[in-house]
Design a protein around this nucleic acid. Structure first.
Lengths: 301, 301
DNA sequence: ATCCAGCATTAGCTCAGCTTAAGTCCAAGC
DNA sequence: GCTTGGACTTAAGCTGAGCTAATGCTGGAT
């Protein structure tokens, strides 16, 4: 009988590409992962990984096994969800991961509603960049998370995860001076100005670069700030221009001129494949949908 | 993440009904099974088993989980089969279980053909009563087995096993004296005679009793013998009458009069669900089909 | 040519999970 | 009613799987 724990490691290796990354995802040492994969390979009787330069890659047999592992893990996830659904009361932990902006805007009301409806449910919130969310979900560090999809940063489909659209926002160009042009013309006017963007490696950073590139230039990024309040303060101080999603805007963005762009940011709810039926996860997702609805109503109303 | 080893114990408990039987099936002590199930229940957070008198039974949640475990285990079995299929040569063990008659008739030629075609395949044959086959397959003690289905002993469908018809035999009434009547009338003529049957608890024993009961009487079983050669010798010695399937008959059944009955014995090939694609198991099944074909050709030719 | 990121290997330790043994409870039999 | 026996549970102890830490090795980058 194939060991499911080892299959899980193989699946992660399939995606992450290096043993060290798998080890990090599971809080193991690379040695442990290497040993477990060696054992799996011995049991399988077929080479599953092979050396490719100084990293490793899956053989066709390994890739096939990883795909099958995906199905097995999804079934187990469903079984867990079914068990939790038979419990009369929601209890245990619900680990939620979200990007900083959401933690400040959408999450509070969702957490209050969840806590009131399910007092025995322990809500654990982790603030993290959406780029880290898929790994954290897959490794079991999170149960429910919010991720983004930008127009020029397509989220690659992941069979281990289930997603559901939550809300769509407009992206604004924030600058200190008034811009006569609108939309992408305004963007092009900023080609020679200094830019303020998030840290390299984050989704927001990538979004800013790609969006500018699509407009025909590469932004000269002078300042890096992940917090949009800081970003807006820098913009107001005349330090450069920036791209800011609707959700990050305060009620009165003083000293900042906002120009709506054609680009959109889509926020999704994500969980592990098979776990959407878990009552705590379903309740969490519902609370987030309600919070998003309230937010949209407040904006448009 | 639910532990698949523990789920397997739960699945067996679902079928076998007692912890002691599960322990026996896996060569564990009842204590070990009890502890593992307790752990599973604690992890599940829902009662899975409850006491019913001095045994235990599954709760609805437990039964549901056991059904899900069935799917998971079948997927894992398929994954193993797919791995084995990528190996260029068939190697490893193939554990075959069969009833004594088949071991002497069908198996030898099948084993010779298999051994010649796949020299690195280790063939391990176990002689056992068909009644024990399902448990042995499910517990992983066998990979491939032959089982029977009699007209009056329906094999209950088992989601954990896959079966395939192999051959259909006539059942004969064996007696020392000539019987003028044919078919079931001959059977009824033997209502008052002493009977020779297999050991209680075996499928053949059950078949004999049920068949006679269907003919309107309960057989007075004087001798018990599992070996059909012995049975025929006892019949020839005038010790009683017996029911013998076609496959068990020697070329020249001296001193015994055989009357064909309407009842049939269907022999099936069985393996674990999901393992039919395993190349060694597929090769074994193919060899058995060939052997059965040769047998039928020799009988009819 | 040198450095270093990344994987393999070894030794050693910890804990999950097994067995043995004792205890509890229920059903059947004298 | 009491006893006997079977089935499950609990407690204690032991073994091995599987982890960490440390070291060595190799291929690509500077």
């Amino acid at each position: 009988m194939l060991d499911v724990r080892r299959l899980r490691l193989l699946r992660e290796l399939h995606r992450l590409g290096t043993i060290a990354a798998v080890a990090q995802a599971f809080s193991y040492t690379p040695s442990a992962v290497s040993q477990q994969l060696s054992t799996l390979e011995r049991e399988a009787g077929v080479p599953l990984v092979r050396h490719a330069g100084r990293r490793v890659e899956l053989t066709p047999a390994g890739a096939d096994l990883a795909a099958r592992a995906e199905s097995v893990l999804a079934l187990l996830e469903e079984a867990s969800a079914a068990l939790a659904a038979t419990r009369s009361e929601l209890a245990g932990e619900l680990r939620i991961g979200a990007f900083p902006t959401a933690v400040r805007t959408l999450l509070p009301s969702a957490l209050v509603a969840l806590g009131a409806a399910h007092p025995r449910l322990e809500l654990l919130v982790t603030e993290l960049d959406p780029a880290q969310v898929p790994d954290a979900l897959r490794a079991g560090a999170l149960d429910l998370a919010l991720v983004h999809e930008y127009d020029y940063v397509p989220a690659e489909p992941d069979p281990a995860l289930a997603t559901e659209p939550l809300l769509i926002e407009t992206i604004f160009l924030a600058s200190a001076a008034d811009r006569p042009a609108s939309g992408d013309d305004a963007l092009r006017q900023c080609a020679v100005l200094p830019w303020i963007a998030a840290s390299p490696g984050t989704l927001c950073y990538l979004m800013a670069v790609r969006l500018c590139q699509a407009a025909g230039f590469t932004p000269r990024i002078r300042h890096h700030a992940d917090d949009f309040a800081t970003v807006l303060a820098l913009v107001a101080a005349g330090q450069g221009v920036a791209l800011v999603p609707e959700l990050a805007l305060p009620a009165d963005p003083a000293g900042v001129v906002l120009t709506a762009l054609a680009a959109r940011r889509r926020t999704l709810i994500a969980c592990r494949a098979g776990s959407a039926g878990h009552p705590a996860i379903a309740a969490g997702a519902a609370a987030l949908r309600t919070a998003a609805g309230q937010y949209l109503a407040a904006r448009t109303g």
